[in-house]
Every structure is written in C-alpha cells, then in structure tokens.
C-alpha cells in the first residue's frame, strides 16, 4: 500500500487523533475524582496543621470531619454570608476582586475534644513572598485575639533563608501572640529584624537574611487579618 498518498495520510491522522483523544478522555474522566480528592485532602491537612493536629493523607478526611465542627464564610463587613461553603472558597481568587466589599473569607471552627467546649477559630492567609506566593492558616483561641497555632508555606522562597517560614521552629514563635492591643486596636503581628523583646505580644523574630520574605509574611498576616478584623472585633469575648 502506498503510505505517501494524501488520502492515506489524511485518514491515518484522523483515526490516530480520534483514538488518542478517546483514550485520553477516558483516562482523565476515570482519574478526576481521585485527583480532586488529593487537593481537598492537602487543604484539610493544612487546616489541621494550623491547630496542631497531625494527620496523614489517609486519615486526614476522618480527622477533619471529626474535629472541624463548623465552617462559615464572612465578608469584610464582618457578617456571615449564607449559602457559601467555606471549604470551596479560593482565597487567591477572592483577593483578586477589585471591590473589597465583595471579597469573601472562610472561617473554620475546630473543637478538638468532644467533651469540652474548647474551640479554635481558623482563618486563611495568602500573600506575596520574595519570589512567589506564600500562604497559610492561622488559628485563634476563643478570645479571637491570641494565636493558637499557624502554618505557612511558600512556592519557591530562597532555601535556607525565606524558605524557613514553613519550619516548625519559625511557626511556633507565633503561638500565644496577640493581634489586638490593650485598647482593642488591631495591630497584627510584626516580624522584627534582629529579634524581639521577650515579652512583645505583637512581634516575632524575622528570619535573618530573609528580610523580604519576612516582610511579605508580615504584610500577608496584616492584610488578611484586616479583612477579618470586623468579624473578630464583633465576636470576641
């Protein structure tokens, strides 16, 4: 058979494209649920990490369902928005909205023990580091002022310097810090170059040599918590 005829080439390529397109469609459809599940589980693990509950990809979903008892969505006026699922809020998209008032922010409530009423409130953060996006979750005690725990991660900060933000050593500094001062004014938590004074409730040590990432982290915490500010002031005890 002459394989160089135009008609042959035409038919050959048509069949090839059809067969491969069909095969890929089947594969993609079959695997889609598993892939989406992976992304969900990673998010659940991150949220759990901010309230210091360890989890593995296998048990994350069960733990999450057990510990995260309540979720809701708020707007920048501090009101709860009905009909939205907090877990499905994509913070990156929300922050891109031009009008502040339209932005929505998720809140997750964690009750670690069934028996008592201890509750932690988890908020989501997202901002810019030196080389790319940084993000994280921060959890507060029921007073909505004292930090209970946090997790940060980054896409590609400088190894050994900015990249230190995702280490436990750095994150543990935030525990016990307060975001409101004595007069109930919102002050956020700053990263302090050269180390903080021991009793400073609003500052943590910046990463030496990772100035830009530290500043980016500080801005991220300030900007995102600012959006939560009204909600936090209205509901704090």
């Amino acid at each position: 058979m002459n394989t160089e005829k135009n008609s042959y080439i035409f038919i050959y390529s048509t069949i090839m494209v059809l067969v491969i397109a069909a095969a890929l469609t089947v594969v993609a459809l079959q695997l889609k649920p598993a892939q989406e599940n992976n992304i969900r589980i990673e998010k659940m693990q991150n949220i759990l990490q901010s309230v210091k509950i360890p989890s593995t990809p296998k048990d994350a979903e069960t733990i999450y369902k057990e510990k995260i008892t309540e979720t809701f969505v708020i707007n920048t006026q501090g009101n709860i928005v009905e009909g939205k699922n907090a877990f499905d809020i994509n913070l990156a998209d929300e922050l891109k909205k031009e009008n502040d008032a339209e932005r929505l922010f998720p809140v997750f409530v964690c009750s670690p023990n069934k028996n008592d009423t201890v509750k932690y409130f988890i908020v989501q953060l997202r901002g810019k580091g030196l080389w790319g996006p940084i993000w994280g979750y921060m959890s507060f005690n029921a007073d909505l002022n004292t930090v209970y725990g946090c997790m940060f991660d980054h896409k590609g900060e400088t190894p050994g310097l900015g990249a230190e933000i995702n280490t436990a050593v750095f994150q543990s500094q935030f525990v016990g810090k307060k975001i409101f001062d004595e007069n109930n004014k919102f002050v956020s938590i700053a990263t302090v170059k050269g180390g903080t004074k021991d009793d400073d409730p609003h500052g943590v040590d910046a990463i030496s040599g990772g100035t830009i990432t530290s500043k980016g982290l500080e801005a991220m915490i300030y900007d995102c918590l600012k959006a939560y500010e009204l909600y936090l002031t209205n509901n704090k005890k």
Binding site: T158, P159, G160, L161, G194, S208, G209
Partner: peptide, 10 residues
Amino acid sequence: AYPSKISGDF
C-alpha cells in the same frame, strides 16, 4: 550554599 553565614546582621 550557606546563606545564613554570609548575610544578615550577625
């Protein structure tokens, strides 16, 4: 290789 030993204030 060892950025923390050649940058920062200390």
